[in-house]
Amino acid sequence: MKHTTLSNTDIKISKVCLGTMTFGQQNTEADGHAQMDYAVEKGINFFDTAEMYSVPGRKETYGSTEKIIGTWFKKTGKREDVVLASKIAGPNPGLAYIRENMDFSPESIALSIDKSLTRLQTDYIDLYQLHWPERKTNFFGQRGFKVQDDAWEDNVHSILATLDGFIKQGKIKYFGLSNETPWGMMRFLEESKYQNLPRIKTVQNPYSLLNRSFETGNAEVCMRENVGLLAYSPLAFGRLSGKHLSGESHPNSRIELFPQLARYNSAKTTEATQLYQEVAHKNGLTLTEMSLAFVNQQAFVNSTIIGATTMEQLKENIAAFDMVLSDEILKEIDAVQAVIPDPAP
């Protein structure tokens, strides 16, 4: 397992990050513990979670993922071996059961951090992230920005000052953004620079062969400002495993279980996936191997978040990071992207 440092820090992290959002819904506590055991055995020391997990968000399963990670920490005593990332949920009427005010006010941040620490059975979170913006903008499958009424008032200074307080208390070490735009990233960077406040270290956004929209705007911000991308959905909800191309039903897959969450069900997505699979097979690779290796090789990617519902999937995904794609394969990938650019926003 290759390692690097969390951007702009001296914390060593694995290039593969274990995503955990299935723990507590698709995966039992025993499943989650087994995945974390295997990940650590293979050299993965970076776990990502969120207060709202498992996914899809439901009142009955809210916080279940953090609880499973917490019982694993208690059982194994390996808290110090893991770089732990979690997130605070932003505004969403469907998640009002999380807390009364779904905002990033000082009170909401304090409440969310303390509840996460309790569930995780730890005294600190290494990387604390804003799960999505408070303002109305394009994220979660929205392809472009649309002008619309927005009551949001710029509170970036307040957020940074509040997080600075928790850093000084030792409850969090660093913080990052998620599902963010170039404007949002630069707004936080600007405020931290001129107000001497903590700086964002990472941004967690979707990035895969089926969604390379991060390359337009965000990638340049990451490269020039030394902010690392934590790439999520590198297999596009399993679409880039190739298993959905046969027409066979996969009732336990996320795409079939939770169609309301799928960004990857269009005809163009299927067409692009078929073309990428042809490139992979032509070069002696599985589509999974090529898809994960592609994301891993991008210079702006700090770590790639993988999730699995079975140990077989987890083992295959981790093994794929040993692959290095040649310049010729990368050119063939770009040729598909030129024909069908980013079919899944």
Score class of each variant (00 low, 15 high):
A96P: 01
N92Y: 12
R119K: 04
V40K: 14
Q121V: 04
D342Q: 09
A320I: 10
D150E: 12
K42F: 01
F294P: 11
M52K: 06
Y194K: 01
E29K: 14
Y264T: 03
S192A: 15
K193S: 12
A34G: 08
I159D: 04
P341I: 05
K42N: 07
N317G: 10
Y38T: 09
S7T: 13
G43C: 06
L330H: 10
Q313H: 14
I329P: 01
A272H: 02
G170K: 06
K315V: 15
L120Y: 03
G307R: 04
E41G: 01
K59G: 11
Y124L: 04
D10K: 13
R187S: 10
R263W: 15
L95C: 08
D48F: 12
K193E: 15
L275E: 15
L160Y: 05
K243E: 05
R99I: 03
E278F: 08
A299N: 09
D31K: 02
L330C: 12
T216P: 00
A110P: 07
G247F: 05
E107W: 09
Q195Y: 12
A96Y: 03
R143P: 00
V295I: 09
K171R: 03
I11W: 05
T216G: 05
D48S: 15
E180Y: 08
K201S: 14
Y62R: 00
Q148S: 13
I98N: 02
M1L: 08
G217T: 05
R187W: 06
V295S: 10
Q26R: 14
K74G: 12
M102E: 03
A335T: 08
V40H: 14
L189D: 02
M36E: 05
E271T: 13
N226T: 05
P198T: 08
V336K: 02
K282H: 13
K268H: 10
E29F: 07
P343G: 09
G242C: 08
A39V: 09
Q313E: 10
G32T: 08
N205V: 04
L257E: 07
G228R: 07
F214N: 05
F258A: 01
K87F: 05
A50Y: 11
G43I: 12
R254G: 00
N196R: 12
Q277Y: 10
G90E: 02
N155A: 09
D150I: 10
A85P: 03
R58E: 14
K78R: 15
R224S: 15
W72T: 04
N8P: 00
Y276M: 09
L257H: 04
A262V: 13
N265G: 10
S64P: 00
P345L: 04
Q26D: 13
T5N: 13
M36R: 03
N317T: 08
S178H: 11
P234N: 06
K87W: 01
I125W: 01
N265F: 06
Y194H: 04
G90A: 05
D48Q: 13
L330M: 15
K331R: 13
D334G: 03
I318D: 06
W72V: 06
M21C: 11
F140C: 09
